[in-house]
Nucleic acid binder design. Structure first.
Lengths: 315, 315
DNA sequence: CTGAAAGCGCTTACAG
DNA sequence: CTGAAAGCGCTTACAG
């Protein structure tokens, strides 16, 4: 009855609930899991170097778990390991979670997905790179976000906008580049190959790209880096070169890391709906809305956050 | 036998292990928990605004859990809630974890500790503020760290060192201040009240303290902020005031946040052994080394990290 | 509709 | 030392 069955008289229900309350009764999760078809456990698999990203992801999932009486179990996962498939097999057989949230890059590991599909374990992928048709996923539109950021720069009069690409192994890198290129094309601004630099999402790579972009007299009036760490690298180089941001150079990033708000000038960037994505994933798992037919796909909104590192193009 | 009992013939052990391997046998954690005295589950309770801090903490605990076949369950916890005691009561009765890691400020909540003691649930406190004799804890020496940082500044010729205190509600704030004051006293440098400002661990409060400290002509040659966010605020103000760091002003922080490395100049700061603390806590819980007598107490080493925001005092 | 029984997959105490 | 039985605290299918 405590599990919310129907067909119980209101009075009876109330009395039982009151008694449970008085005795501080709380069902044991292991017993429920063993006896029933639910474990009230959701697993979050990650293999991500950024504690902040993983932390944000958890916050979203946790808020939904809490409401539904679920608990979150976090599992580091070595995507590069040869036996990744077996590892996940072991995991689901010991844990019997009601579902798994797969964060990048775990969500793009074919062997992991194979095992999960075969075992019939429900899972939701967060922002996967490939095989988007394969299973339930939650993501945002990287292309549109990069597009919008570029449009913002164009609207401020910039016509010469450098771009630093992200790590080539990350799918988002290509999507963001496409958004940038599309916005330029729409505005009739031609894309110059020497304005595009390869980065790797690290501060260091941002510094190197910025040095190439900003050293000579022929330099762009704005630089859009594919993530905040690289944008910070650009700002650092600008500072060293005596270029005032945003007066001489506008800089935009992507991610809205904590650093973006404590740097000066504060960084214009894109906020990804990280907590919202994992919250949506937890929702799907808890509500068991994954079963039938075509895989669920949720697209969440990003947000372009205009702060002080961008401004009108110098004339 | 698979649980590592002694008195099994080597050959037998090997054959069983091989069979288990071949069948990919992995015991179900719920069944083990229900039947036996171990749940192979450790809970991490947090109520901390910083995802990065919580993420770092998890990494340490996770590494030990993984080795020992344990799993980590993370639980957000509302310390301010009136029914915090009941909440933790409910938690331990549904989850039956083998132990709890209590992070600040949960580790300083009297009702939580009371419930846990009464229920006989093992727990380890991470860097608690008060009642240090009460139960097992893992921490670092904030006073010594602040002392060492101040000594470093003194060694670079600084005799006029401003200090920004941390949030008055956090025990560490007082300890850090004491370390600073002690180092000055040892060096025979007198402490000037107008050089001490109250901050609240936020960037904003660092900015305000720095404005008070640096605006006039009579200003310190170095500022030691009780955490990195406030140190960043100091650097931001210095930048706005045209003070070159470290040439005109040395700045030191505390925490070694990710931002400290991507700012320019890079921030001199103290690295706290965050992951090590939670790893030690997990060790104690998994090894069940908590039972008898005087509470275990582990003191871990900090590290003063000298980077580019500090330098010789201007003459 | 309701209540008592079986059983989930293990560990543990115990009889052999 | 070893093996079979009991039992952990629930859910679920089933007999009443």
């Amino acid at each position: 009855m405590l599990n919310g069955e129907p067909n119980v008289r209101a009075e009876t229900r109330q009395r039982v609930t009151a008694a449970a309350e008085a005795l501080r009764y709380t069902p044991n999760i292991s017993a429920r899991s063993l006896a029933g078809s639910r474990s009230y456990l959701i697993g979050l698999l990650f293999d991500n170097p950024s504690p902040a990203y993983v932390g944000d992801l958890q916050l979203g999932a946790l808020s939904r778990c809490r409401e539904a009486g679920y608990h979150l179990i976090v599992e580091p996962f070595d995507t590069a390991a040869r036996d990744a498939g077996e590892a996940v097999e072991r995991l689901v057989s010991t844990l019997k979670t009601d579902g798994l949230i797969l964060t990048p890059p775990v969500c793009d590991h074919p062997a992991v997905l194979d095992v999960l599909d075969r075992a019939g374990v429900p899972y939701v992928r967060i922002a996967p790179d490939r095989d988007l048709e394969r299973a339930a996923l939650v993501h945002m539109d990287d292309t549109a976000a990069a597009h919008d950021m570029t449009v913002l720069l164009l609207a401020q009069g910039h016509r010469d906008i450098g771009f630093i690409r992200g790590h080539p192994e990350h799918g988002a890198s290509h999507l963001r580049y496409e958004g940038y290129a599309a916005a330029l094309a729409e505005a009739g601004v031609s894309l110059r190959a020497e304005r595009i630099r390869q980065g790797f999402f690290s501060f260091r790579s941002g510094v190197e790209a910025a040095e190439a972009l900003l050293s000579g007299p022929d330099r762009p009036t704005a630089v859009f880096a594919s993530n905040d760490d690289m944008a910070l690298g650009v700002m650092s180089v600008a500072n060293r070169l005596g270029l005032a941001v945003p007066h001489d150079l506008s800089v935009a990033g992507f991610d809205d890391t904590p650093t973006a708000r404590v740097i000066w000038p504060q960084l214009t960037t894109v906020r990804q709906p990280i907590a919202e994505m994992s919250a949506a994933a937890a929702d799907l798992l808890i509500g068991r809305k994954l079963g039938d037919g075509v895989p669920v796909r949720r697209l969440l909104d990003f947000q372009v956050i205009v702060r002080d590192s961008t401004g009108p193009a110098p004339r």
